[in-house]
Structure formats: structure tokens, C-alpha cells
Write a protein that binds this DNA or RNA. Structure first.
Lengths: 110, 110
DNA sequence: ACAATCCGTAAGTCATAACTTACGGTAAGT
DNA sequence: ACTTACCGTAAGTTATGACTTACGGATTGT
């Protein structure tokens, strides 16, 4: 359920930039917005989306609000992706061998 | 570069349903569209986006076109996510300990 | 108490993208 | 050769969401 919101949240480029800014550690909103090509309220809205997706969490610090990465959303996406990984590798390998069989044996029909 | 398109592609719900239908193995377009609440051309457009993101590949089979999951796009996203994982766990753990210190020692300022 | 700082939300604008129907092109079967 | 099945693309419509400015609430310092 939460991996859906997380994927949707990470789809936006500037929202990813916001998220990436938290990789180096917790930061306040104004600090995150500094250097980004969008306004501070826009960053607040992005952080709201990231929070609802379980990708970040926040803590009040005086008049500021410090945000940091929440492993929950990240883990949900990873788990969802892993569900495909084995199938993908097997299917892809099968395709390669299928193609080999065709070209090598001269089964091309033209 | 390719993880961006992959994230953007996996953000759409119906596109995820298309992608998930390929988990059980290669399928033709019409077969994928069967049961989905959108038209077949819509599925073709979704497959085009998934293909450009490196998430699926296709092969002609007579008059049909068989699609299957491509591990490339999947791997790119996994790699990008893993980049955050360690940082996220460390930062989150630090937040937990920070909170413990505050509440237990009675440092609340009120 | 007052001023200043920091932040979230509301309202409104505008671009994007997800869908539809219509069409054309290719491969297989008769 | 003709029909049928399967698919991709074009054109047009519509909803969604990313952004802006304006505003109000909460906290800290003087």
C-alpha cells in the first residue's frame, strides 16, 4: 500500500532533489529550499507528499522543522522491486537462449 | 539516467498493472490488455513508456508482439535506492536515540 | 509585549500526461 | 488476392499536479 505512494512521490524530479538533499543528514525546510530552483512553499508541499509516502519524517526544533529520511518507505519500494527481480532475470535469460537457438541453427525464416 | 525514467514510469497505477502482468512470464499486448479497465491502445502506450525506461523488452512473434520484463531498468532503480539505504538507517537510528535522551533525562523545556 | 524568523496552508494558474476513437501497416490463413 | 487478426501511432479531450503569491500560526529573542 505504501510502496505505491512512494513510487508516485519519487517520480517527480524536484521532489527527488529534495529527497536527495536529506541523504547527507537531517535538514530544516529553509535549508533544503536554499539552492533549489523553486520557492520554499513548494518545498513544503513536496515534503508533505514525501512524508505521506513514508519516505521522510520530521521533528520540530524551535521555530524550524527538521526533516530526515525514513527507512520505511524506502524499504517498501525495495521489497516491491525484489518481487520482480528473480522472475525478470529468469525470463530475460530465457529470451537470450531463445534468440541463440533461432540465429545459430539458422531457423530464420526469410 | 535511466532510473529517472523508470521511477517516472512505475508511478502510474495502470502502468504498474501492465508491468505486474509480465511477472508471470512473456505476454502479447492483447493478452495484457484483456482484463484491464483501459483500451488496448492505452496499453500499447504504457508499454512504450516502460520500454523507453528499460523496464521491458519486446520481440515480434508473427503478427503479435510479445513483451517481457527487462532487468536493466529494475536494476537501475534498485541501485539508486540502495544509495540511500545505509544513510537512512543511520539517520533514523540517530533520531531514535536523540528522542530517548530528551524524554528520559527530562530535558523538556516547558 | 513586540518584532523577527520559520514554516504550513489556501487559492489560483498552467503544463503535462493518461485516456479515447480513428486510422494505417504488417503478418498469417483461405 | 482477399480477409482477418494484431498492433502502433495520430489527434483531441480532460483531469491531475507542480508551481506561484498571499496569508496566518507558532516560537525565539529583546
Amino acid at each position: 500500500m505504501t510502496y505505491e505512494n512512494a513510487l508516485s512521490a519519487l517520480a517527480d524530479p524536484t521532489r527527488r532533489r529534495v529527497f536527495e538533499r536529506l541523504k547527507s543528514g537531517p535538514r530544516a525546510v529553509g535549508d533544503i529550499a536554499r539552492g533549489l530552483p523553486v520557492s520554499r512553499p513548494a518545498v513544503s508541499q513536496h515534503l508533505k507528499v514525501l512524508k505521506e509516502a513514508g519516505l521522510v519524517a520530521d521533528r520540530p526544533e524551535g521555530t524550524r522543522r527538521v526533516y530526515y529520511i525514513d527507512p520505511q518507505g524506502l524499504g517498501a519500494v525495495r521489497k516491491w522491486l525484489d518481487q520482480f527481480w528473480d522472475h525478470a532475470l529468469a525470463a530475460f535469460q530465457a529470451e537470450l537462449e531463445r534468440d541463440e537457438g533461432d540465429t545459430q541453427a539458422g531457423k530464420g525464416k526469410s
